[in-house]
């Protein structure tokens, strides 16, 4: 378990090799602004995307280059909020949520090799997609979408065609994450009352419960080697990062701090976790060994 209260090794500009080798927690950003959704965007782990409250009226996608510590806007000319980026394992495809109008959000799927972009448009009225996840074979994107008072998991082709409802249960189903072989998906669901983790086959069958706590278990992320799932839980009273094996065994706590730790993501080699850490009222990206 890592106690992050005191020790946060500096920081920005740390070489990429050092980033991979460091045993201590590393703070990757220093601006302290409200952040969310970090995800590695290159297979070699050299680059991160995340969303930041860049100005009072916009969540903006940012790119962090670890070798230089440089943080820059991914879409500098964009004025609408964009968040929840997801990147394919090979770094070719990017999916994210984009605010299109009043309480209306689309999902954008972009081929970074050729710049081609397709959309899953918002439904009628107030509606929006949540939490895209790209399948390891680059053929499908899972996402969460509300209908009929419930929030389901859908699957859509990488070309944004043929949306199919995968998970239809009571409550909210959200934050899908593929196993490395693409055969399984872990997600959170409130079907049994509060948010707990569930695992299913990637076709939506064989749903089984993974965690059972009286608090929230949210935002699961499957490790690249398939052996662990990290997630956020407030089972101790505030948001911390936890880890569990895909069969539900070996629950362990990764962080322990009186302020929030949330939005964990794995480095592509599985050697580090990056998450949003709130420290002294400031939110920054921090990297730790899991």
């Amino acid at each position: 378990m890592i106690r992050l209260g005191v020790l946060l090794v500096a920081v920005v500009g740390l070489g990429f090799g050092q980033f991979l080798a460091a045993a201590e927690p590393i703070r990757l950003t220093t601006d302290g602004r409200v952040k969310r959704d970090p995800v590695f965007s290159k297979p070699d782990g050299s680059e991160l995307l995340f969303a930041v409250l860049d100005r009072p009226k916009q969540l903006r996608l940012m790119k962090l280059t670890l070798a230089s510590g440089k943080v820059e806007s991914l879409h500098p000319d964009e004025t609408r909020s964009e968040f929840e980026p997801a990147v394919s394992r090979d770094g070719r495809f990017l999916a994210f949520v984009q605010n299109r109008g009043n309480l209306s959000l689309a999902m954008v799927i972009k081929d970074l090799m050729n710049g081609h972009q397709v959309d899953v448009p918002p439904g009628g009225g107030f509606s929006g997609m949540h939490s895209p996840a790209i399948a390891p074979d680059n053929l499908r994107v899972l996402y969460s979408y509300p209908e009929d008072g419930r929030q389901h998991l859908f699957s859509v082709g990488i070309d944004a065609k043929n949306p199919t409802r995968l998970v239809d249960s009571s409550g909210v189903n959200n934050w899908p994450s593929f196993s490395p072989d693409g055969q399984q998906v872990v997600f959170s669901s409130t079907r049994d009352g509060d948010y707990d983790l569930y695992v299913m086959k990637s076709d939506g069958t064989d749903v089984r419960r993974l965690t059972d706590s009286p608090k929230q278990d949210i935002r699961p992320r499957w490790s690249p080697d398939g052996r662990r799932i990290v997630f956020t839980s407030n089972r101790d009273g505030n948001y911390e990062i936890y880890s569990v094996a895909p069969d539900g065994s070996g629950l362990s706590r990764v962080t322990n701090h009186p302020e929030q730790d949330d939005f964990a993501t794995w480095s592509p080699d599985g050697r580090r976790l990056v998450f949003v850490a709130e420290r002294d009222g400031h939110q920054d990206l921090v990297s730790v060994e899991p």
Partner: peptide, 24 residues
Amino acid sequence: ESITPNCDFGWDTHIYNFELLQDT
């Protein structure tokens, strides 16, 4: 408006109610 272009994230959560309350 809670999530609308050029609006500053009020509490009007006709969508994303649970996510916005929890996340921000």
